Amino acid sequence: MKKSLIALAVIAVSGTAFAQSSVTIYGKADIGVARSIGSDVNELKQAAGSRVGFRGTEDLGGGLKANFTYEHRFLPDTGAVANTSSFFTGRSIVGLEGGFGRIDMGRDYSAAFWTALAGDVFGYDGVAANGGVAGAGYQTVRFDNVISYKSPTMGGLTLEASSALKEAGAKNGSAIRVSYASGPIAASIATEKGLAGQKYNGFGASYNLGVASVRALISKGESATGVESDGMLLGLVVPMGALQLKASYATLEVAGKDTVQQMGLGARYALSKRTDVYTSYANNSKSTAAKKNGIEFGVQHNF
C-alpha cells in the first residue's frame, strides 16, 4: 500500500513537472505557380517562407520562464535548404521571460522589422509584397549574434530593442521600436542602424473599421555612403467571412529617383482553419524590366 502511494506521488509530481514545460512543433508549407515582375517564366515557388520550427517554454517558478525557438526554412519545390549558410535561418534563440519583459539571444528579427512588416498587408510574401518599400531598401530583417529585449506592455505601449554584437570583425547593428495598440488603433515608430552602417527609420499606423482595416507607413533610409531613400505604403484589408481581399500601393524614391510605384491586389480564401488558397497580382510601373506585372496562385498549409 505504501509503495502504491509513493508511486502515485511520483507520478503526480512528474505530471506537474511536465505540465510546467512544453515543446511545440509548428510549420508552414506554401507553394504555387507564380510569374514575378520582370520575368516571363511561370515558376513553381513559394509566396511565404515554408518552414519547420520547434518552440518550447519551461516555467521556472516565481513568474520566470525559459523559452527557445529554432526554425528551419526550406524551398518546397525542390526540398533544398532556403539558406545554405544557415540551417535554422528563420530564428535561433534562447531566452528568459518574466515581469521584466523578455530577453532572447541568438539569431532573431530586428526590432525595426516589425514596423516595416506591419505596413505590408501581404506580409512580405508573394509577388504583391512591398517589403522593399516598407524597409526603404535598407531595413535589416534579421540580425545574427543579437540580444533582443521586449518590455511588458503598459498603457498600450511596448518597447523593443535589438543589439547585434561585433564578432569576427563584423560591425554591430542595433534597432529600437516603440509600439502602441488600443482597440482598433495600432501604431509604431522604429529606428535602426544596419550591419553595413546603413540606416532606417519608419512610422506606421493602422485602424480597424470593422468592415475593413487600413494601414499606412512612411519610411526613410540611408546607405552607408549617404544615399537616401524615401518610402510610402498604403494598404487595405477587407474580411468577408472565409474570404479576405487585400490591396496596397507603394512608392520608393532612391537618390531623388522614383524606383518603385507598385500596386498590389490579392485574395485569400480559408478552406479550413489551417489551409488557405490565394492569388495576387502586382504592377510596378517604374520597373526597368519589360514585364512590369506579376501574378500568382497557390496554397498554404499551417501546422
Rank of each mutant, 00 (worst) to 15 (best):
R51E: 14
A29P: 09
L60R: 00
L96K: 01
L96I: 02
L75E: 13
Q46G: 12
Y138V: 03
F100N: 08
F88I: 05
G123H: 05
G61D: 09
T57L: 07
V127K: 11
R55W: 15
D125P: 06
D40M: 03
A118P: 09
A80E: 04
F54Q: 06
D108C: 07
L165E: 11
S163D: 15
D108I: 04
G101F: 01
T115D: 12
A34N: 14
V81Q: 08
D120K: 07
Q139R: 11
D77E: 12
G106Y: 05
V94I: 08
W114Y: 14
P152R: 02
Q46H: 07
I93C: 07
K28Q: 13
F88D: 01
D40I: 07
G53P: 12
I103Y: 07
F113Q: 09
T57P: 01
A168T: 01
T69I: 08
N83H: 01
A164S: 14
A168V: 00
M154C: 01
F54L: 15
A116V: 03
S50V: 00
V94L: 14
N42A: 15
I93W: 00
Y70Q: 00
E58A: 12
G90M: 08
G61T: 13
D59N: 14
T153F: 06
V141P: 13
Y70M: 04
F88V: 06
E167I: 06
A112V: 04
I147V: 15
I93E: 10
K166Y: 01
D108H: 11
T89D: 06
I93F: 05
Y70W: 05
G126Q: 02
F143K: 09
K166V: 09
E97L: 03
F88W: 09
R102L: 07
G32F: 06
W114F: 10
G135C: 09
A134Y: 10
S50D: 13
N145W: 05
Y124K: 02
S39K: 14
T153A: 12
A112I: 03
A129C: 10
R51L: 10
N42R: 00
V94G: 11
N67G: 00
H72Q: 04
M105T: 03
G32V: 01
D40H: 10
A129P: 11
A129N: 13
S86E: 13
L44W: 05
K166D: 15
T78N: 04
D108M: 03
A134K: 12
F87P: 02
A47F: 03
L44I: 12
E160A: 13
G49R: 04
L60W: 05
G56Y: 07
P76G: 01
G63S: 02
S148M: 05
Q139E: 14
A111G: 12
F68T: 04
A112C: 06
G101Y: 03
S39M: 08
A164Y: 06
R142Y: 15
P76M: 02
A118D: 11
V146A: 14
G132W: 07
R51M: 13
A161C: 10
D30K: 05
